[in-house]
Design a protein around this nucleic acid. Structure first.
Lengths: 344, 344
DNA sequence: CTGTTAGCGCCTTCAG
DNA sequence: CTGAAGGCGCTAACAG
């Protein structure tokens, strides 16, 4: 039997025989209320089925418990797995997640940013890697904000992401440990910060193992499947073959494996391959790809931890924005083994 | 230069030289305000950067513009693609999406359902297929609600989903058109309503083509990959081989294809196979699977349309809950061809 | 430790 | 067509 009208704080107060202020305190700072009073109040809450009206509360406090998550693409598996971490952590802290899907459309982003104001959002999580440049936005009083996956261009928001250097290093060390020395790096580019860092991890591992790098094995690429295929062709043309390919991401690795298969080679018997990201496809291709797994749900969790710290600190003075880099794990599958003894 | 304090309706009223009532009207029912006045107000809104305070508005109106979406698993691709439709349509209607991730945990579901009350949610979208049975829930005054993908057990909520019968029929007709007559149906079960309906579609198509069904080609299954594999083994043991397998879902189809490959057969040359759902894997296996695509984003869009109708009608009297079945499309890939001429 | 009270910003009668 | 005023439910002083 659902009560016709949702009980308010006054109903509870009346039934408990106390004032509404006491009810409010009993709910939100129980320690400031006498034990017996608290019990009476809780009792009354039970019988009335009272739930605090979040709208009234937010209006009064000038801030809601809603965190807006802005993402360019909800469908992206990277996003959804991270969202799990975000949602779980936010809920544990009594905050709710409002989803904004920008589709990379600045207008949609602006509209959602406005939500931040109108809903008095407690915080903002940005997956977008950028904020629309517009007077509307710069005039908007944004709540505490944190960037995830990609730092936000031209803005000093704290950032939580993967430690690409550590990841690049782990992948390389794995190849090295399997006995590879002639390792190609596929996807060299200045364009993408993450790729640059993965390369740096590669260099670190090679240096630490005192392996001299052969520049001809460093192949440019943009992370596309074509760039992986192209790299293989290039290497065959140059006639400087590696025994292993360390690819800047899984997509590139898949391209490499395609091209190798097309030429009749076997992975991993003829060549070993590693990727980076652990996209869903990595399991379905054959052989399954050994790769570095993006710690997505941990990134989500950490992002909310940092964001809540910001919210609770409410120094408007943002100090040096912190960067949190989560070290990713290597996931072992079938695309790496020891180098073949006989040359190709 | 961000204004120190967010402008309120009073600021706008003062600058426009009107009362706050007029501002409110100019914003929400412009037709009830003189043109010149409206212009003055809009002008003032522009200079102040005024955004209406959704919390105050919701408090006053007793209802927010938030729609709660409850899903057991955010990571499920089925969910995320549907969410795109939901989000897009909701946004077009000025509503926001709050995400609740239940992980099939009744306690989490109950907590989120409570949000519905505390945030005065305008509506509720259920992916869960069930509601926790608890006094807490039955006592809760839930807002207009709509179920998606799975109807809610023991509750009469309108439901938007795929037309499984039409889908089953399309897949079967495709096989028939390719020349198959001995078609196995894999995944027969009473347990799952969706599967039952897909079977009905199969029967319809077979009947329409006046093909006599061979009961030995109807194989039970639960939609798992193992059940697909098992079906193949069973059919080979019975020694009654079909020329094509119509599988109740993609996962089953993948199991069928695995087992066929293990026995050294080629799909589609030796056997044709169809699935249902169009899961991401369907593209990655070889050959890529011809299947029925779940119209996920349309389902999302339709769900919000129906929900908004409910919200706006606000007859508390729910009439016969409507069912909206979206007819899915066949997606042609590589797993179907004409039956081989020579028997296996 | 508890009660009284003043708004938070808005929408909506009710009068003009 | 416009203005005045009440109150949605709650929290945070401020008193007691």
């Amino acid at each position: 039997m659902a009560p016709k009208n949702q009980a308010t704080i006054e109903d509870v107060a009346r039934i408990a025989g106390v004032s509404i202020a006491t009810v409010s305190r009993a709910v939100h700072s129980p320690e400031r209320v006498a034990k017996t009073t608290r019990q009476k109040v809780n009792q009354a809450i039970l019988v009335t089925g009272y739930t605090t009206n979040a709208m009234a509360r937010s209006l009064r406090m000038g801030r809601s418990n809603i965190i807006l998550v802005l993402a360019p693409d909800i469908g992206d598996p990277n996003f959804s797995s991270t969202l799990i971490g975000i949602e779980t952590e936010a809920r544990a802290r009594n905050h709710a997640i409002l989803i904004g899907h920008t589709q990379n459309d600045p207008q949609r982003a602006i509209d959602y940013l406005r939500y931040t104001t109108s809903h008095k959002a407690a915080g903002l999580v940005l997956f977008t890697g950028r904020l629309p440049l517009s007077d509307a936005v710069s005039a908007m009083p944004l709540p505490p904000t944190i960037a995830v996956f990609e730092p936000v261009q031209d803005a000093a928001y704290p950032y939580v992401g993967v430690d690409d250097i550590a990841g690049g290093r782990k992948a390389t060390e794995h190849l090295l440990a399997a006995g590879h020395r002639k390792i190609a790096f596929v996807g060299d580019t200045q364009m993408r910060a993450a790729f640059r860092r993965r390369r740096a991890g590669f260099d670190l591992a090679m240096d630490a193992a005192r392996v001299d790098q052969d520049n001809r094995l460093i192949v440019e690429g943009d992370g596309s499947i074509e760039s992986g295929r192209h790299a293989v062709e290039l290497l065959f043309m140059r006639d400087t073959l590696p025994t292993a390919f360390m690819c800047v991401n899984d997509t590139t690795a898949i391209g490499v494996m395609n091209a190798l298969a097309a030429r009749g080679y076997n992975v991993p018997l003829d060549f070993s391959v590693t990727g980076f990201d652990d996209v869903p496809q990595a399991t379905y291709i054959s052989p399954a790809l050994t790769t570095i797994r993006q710690p997505r749900s941990i990134i989500g969790k950490t992002a909310i931890e940092r964001l809540m710290a910001l919210i609770e600190a409410d120094h408007p003075a943002t100090e040096t924005p912190k960067e949190d880099l989560i070290s990713p794990d290597l996931v072992l599958r079938g695309s790496v083994t020891t180098p073949r003894q006989t040359p190709i």
